[in-house]
Design a binder for these strands. Sequence first.
DNA 1: GTCTATAACGAGATAGAC
DNA 2: GTCTATCTCGTTATAGAC
Lengths: 193, 193
Amino acid sequence: MRVEDGAVADTAEKALDIAERLVQVRGFNGVSYADVAAELGITKAALHYHFASKAELGTALITRYTTRFEAALAEIDQRINDAPAKISAYAGIYLNVVRQQRMCLCGMLAAEYQTLPTSMRDAVVRFFDINETWLEGVLKAGEQAGTVRPRGSTRDAARVVISTLEGAMLVARLRDDPTRLEAAKDQLLAELS
Amino acid sequence: MRVEDGAVADTAEKALDIAERLVQVRGFNGVSYADVAAELGITKAALHYHFASKAELGTALITRYTTRFEAALAEIDQRINDAPAKISAYAGIYLNVVRQQRMCLCGMLAAEYQTLPTSMRDAVVRFFDINETWLEGVLKAGEQAGTVRPRGSTRDAARVVISTLEGAMLVARLRDDPTRLEAAKDQLLAELS
DNA sequence: GTCTATAACGAGATAGAC
DNA sequence: GTCTATCTCGTTATAGAC
C-alpha cells in the first residue's frame, strides 16, 4: 500500500473491470468467459487460470464491488454530517451508475438470485445488509438531530430508500432516462423531511 | 367468449403458464425450452411447434401478462373510486406476486433488457407505459378530489410508485420477506396523503 | 400435435505444451 | 501466465416420420 503500485492493474483486476461492466449491463447469465476473455485479449483458458470457475469470478466481483461501496459510504461519513445531505450523496452513487447505462451489480444479481451459486447469493445478501445498516444509522442520527423525520421505523425507512433507488435504476435503464432516478431521489428526500 | 370454453387450457396456454412462472423466478436467460417442455410433459420439438422461437415465446409471455394486468387495473377502476384505495389495491397486485416468491415478469425482463430481442423489448416498455399512464390518471383524479397530494408532478409521482414497488420486490425476494413490500406500500400511501 | 433424431453452436472447464 | 486443443454438456432450432 505505498507509492509503488502505480496503477499497473494486473490481468485479474482488468478481467474484473470488464466482467463487472458486462454483468451490470447484461446480467450474470448473459455474460460468458468468452465475452470477458475476448475483450481482455486473452483466451478462455487463460481466464480460467485467474478464476477457476464462473462462481469464483462472480463472488470476486461482488466482494470487490461491496468493498468499493463501503469505501464510498465511509467517504460520505467523513465528508458530510447532515443526514439529508448524506442520503442525497448516497442516491448520487446510484445516479452515477445509471448514467453509465448500467444497473447496480447487486440489484442485477438480485434479479438472477435463484440461479446463482450459494457463495454468490450470500455475498449479494451481505451487500444489501451493509447498505441497510448504514442507511439506518444515518436515519437514526438524523432523527436525533432533528434533520430527518422518517414516517415509520428507521429500519423500514432505510429499506424503502434502497428499494426505491434500485427499482428506479431498473426502470430508468429501459429508456436510458436518468431523470427517473432524480425524481425518485427528490421524492425520498422530500418525504424524509 | 361464451360458456363453452370450460377451462380446457390447451397446450400453448399451459406452456405459457409454466414459462411465466419459471421466468419470474429464474429470468428469461435462466429458462430453456427443455425446462418448459419437461414440466409440460412434451418434447422440446413439440414446444417449438407452438412457439417457433424463444423470442416468440417471450413476446407471447409479455403480451398475455400485460393483458391480464390491464384487466386487473380495469377491475380496480370499476370496484374502487377512492384514489388511495386504488393505489393500495395496485400495490396489492405486486404483493401477491412476491408472496408466490416471484418477481414481476416485466421487472425481471427489465433487468435482462439488454439481452432481449427487439420484439420483447418493445413489449416490456409498453407494459411500463400502461402502468405509468394508469397511475398518473389515478393520481390526477385523486388530486382533484383532494384525496391525494403528490409532491411533484403526477407523472413523476406515478413513476416513483412503480419504481418503489418493483425495487421492493427485487429486494424482498432475496430473503423471501413480503413485509418489505408492505413497508414500501405503507410509505407510498403515507407520502401521497 | 407430438415424436425421434440430429444439426449447429456456445457454454464452462481441463490437459498439457510453451 | 498464456497458449492450443479438446471434452462434455446444454442450448436453440430443424427435418421428417407417425
